Amino acid sequence: MIQSMTGFGKHVVQLPSKKITVELKSLNSKSLDINARIPQTYREKELELRKMIADALVRGKVDLGLYVEITGEETTAEVNQGVVRNYMEQLAQIAPGDEIKLLELALRMPDTLKTDKDDIDPEEYEAIKEAIGQALSKIIGFRNEEGKVLEKDFVERIENLKSLLDKVKSMDPERIATVRERLERAVSDLKVEVDANRFEQELIYYLEKYDITEEKVRLDNHLNYFDTTLNSDDSNGKKLGFIAQEIGREINTIGSKSNYAPMQQIVVQMKDELEKIKEQMLNVL
């Protein structure tokens, strides 16, 4: 079963005095790239949180948003009363005035608020990890659903390629006969006497260069291998990508060897189907 790298997960936890919101968003990427936006208080736990995400999501460009909103009376900021009084005294010496006005001016000055760095509450941190775990479950569910859509499209494209390959196989004898006839007619038009045995040898050598038997067999094997990998237990987008490259190599060789317009038209259709597979492959985990 394949997974998409595109997904979204969100979970909210309400504590007595805080509301914790975790958001996870992922897009496709060649490797794992985590961008974390978390409060300064929890920076020391960032590596641990990143490992949680890396173990679960494996690959993709992932944005983590951790938001902590104080909903109770708790606050970490206090007015630095001594500093404020000192500012008011200095301002009064410069221009005596109403205390309320002096207070307003003093509060605009630097260092009038002090913020004590809180120690991380173990219960609160456990709630954050639980929220991240729930968000991960949701984003993985999202990825699985997107993966089902991709899988359905891949199955359809591979079946189309198999159908086109069957057309190539059925057309191949006619192609060889047409190429042979074209060569014989070209030699005949030269109106020169040729050694029949030597001509037959050269003709066989020429036709062998345009033989696509091996390419047809390998392409058939690659298409079946793609199906097998698609139905495996793990999601391996890189492996599917390598198989798609091999499929493309065989299609290109058939096109270059065909030397027959009807078959080349089928090859163009095969390339179109493969290109659509490659576009979708960028999203597979």
Score class of each variant (00 low, 15 high):
Ala56Pro: 01
Glu193Pro: 00
Lys101Arg: 14
Leu161Gly: 06
Gly141His: 07
Arg157Cys: 04
Lys278His: 09
Ile38Gln: 02
Ile243Glu: 01
Glu202Val: 10
Glu159Tyr: 08
Lys61Gly: 06
Glu273Leu: 10
Lys101Met: 09
Ser256Phe: 10
Met263Tyr: 01
Asp121Thr: 02
Ile34Asp: 00
Arg180Ser: 08
Leu282Gln: 15
Lys101Gln: 12
Lys138Glu: 13
Asn197Thr: 13
Thr75Leu: 02
Lys10Ile: 09
Gly97Asn: 09
Met281Ser: 05
Asn221Thr: 08
Lys216Asp: 00
Leu240Ser: 06
Leu15Val: 01
Leu282Asn: 14
Lys25Phe: 07
Lys138Asp: 13
Tyr67Ala: 07
Asp227Leu: 12
Met88Gln: 15
Glu124Asp: 08
Tyr205Phe: 12
Tyr206Trp: 12
Ser170Asn: 06
Ala196Tyr: 05
Glu200Pro: 10
Ser235Trp: 13
Lys138Val: 07
Phe142Leu: 04
Ser170Lys: 14
Ala261Pro: 10
Glu273Cys: 11
Lys257Thr: 09
Glu146Leu: 04
Ile53Leu: 15
Leu285Pro: 03
Lys19Thr: 08
Glu73Gln: 13
Glu279Met: 11
Val194Met: 07
Leu203Met: 13
Met52Lys: 15
Gly60Asp: 01
Glu48Thr: 04
Val179Asn: 11
Ile132His: 01
Met1Arg: 15
Glu159Ile: 02
Ala92Glu: 15
Lys271Phe: 11
Arg85His: 14
Gln14Tyr: 00
Glu126His: 03
Ser26Leu: 03
Ser163Asn: 12
Asp33Arg: 09
Lys191Asp: 01
Asp98Phe: 04
Glu145Cys: 01
Thr112Val: 03
Tyr67Thr: 14
Asp227Tyr: 02
Glu159Met: 05
Thr229Asp: 10
Glu208Ala: 09
Thr228Lys: 10
Glu184Phe: 09
Met171Cys: 04
Phe142Thr: 01
Lys61Ala: 05
Val155Trp: 11
Arg182Ser: 14
Met5Val: 08
Asn160Phe: 00
Lys61Pro: 05
Asn252Tyr: 15
Lys148Trp: 06
His222Glu: 02
Gln269Asn: 15
Met52Glu: 11
Gly147Lys: 04
Gln40Lys: 11
Gln40Glu: 15
Arg180Tyr: 07
Ser26Asn: 07
Asp116Arg: 03
Asp234Trp: 01
Leu32Glu: 00
Ala127Asp: 06
Ile120Asp: 07
Thr6His: 03
Thr76Tyr: 05
Asp33Trp: 02
Glu123Ala: 15
Lys257Arg: 13
Tyr210Asn: 10
His11Arg: 10
Asp111Tyr: 06
Ile70Gly: 08
Ala135Cys: 08
Asp272Cys: 10
Lys45Met: 07
Ile34Gly: 00
Lys10Thr: 03
Lys257Ile: 09
Glu246Leu: 08
Ile204Thr: 09
Gln269Ala: 14
Pro173Leu: 06
Lys209Leu: 01
Met52Val: 03
Glu78Tyr: 06
Asn231Glu: 13
Arg50Lys: 15
Val58Thr: 08
Ile158Ser: 12
Gly141Phe: 04
Thr75Tyr: 04
Glu99His: 04
Gln265Asn: 11
Tyr42Val: 02
Arg249Gly: 14
Ile38His: 07
Ile70Met: 12
Glu156Val: 04
Gln280Val: 03
Glu78Leu: 05
Ile20Trp: 01
Leu15Pro: 00
His11Asp: 06
Ile120Pro: 00
Lys162Ser: 08
Ser235Asn: 14
Glu123Ser: 12
Leu66Arg: 13
Glu200Gly: 09
Gln134Met: 11
Ala261Tyr: 05
Ala56Leu: 02
Ala261Phe: 05
Asp116Lys: 06
Leu230Asp: 00
Arg85Phe: 13
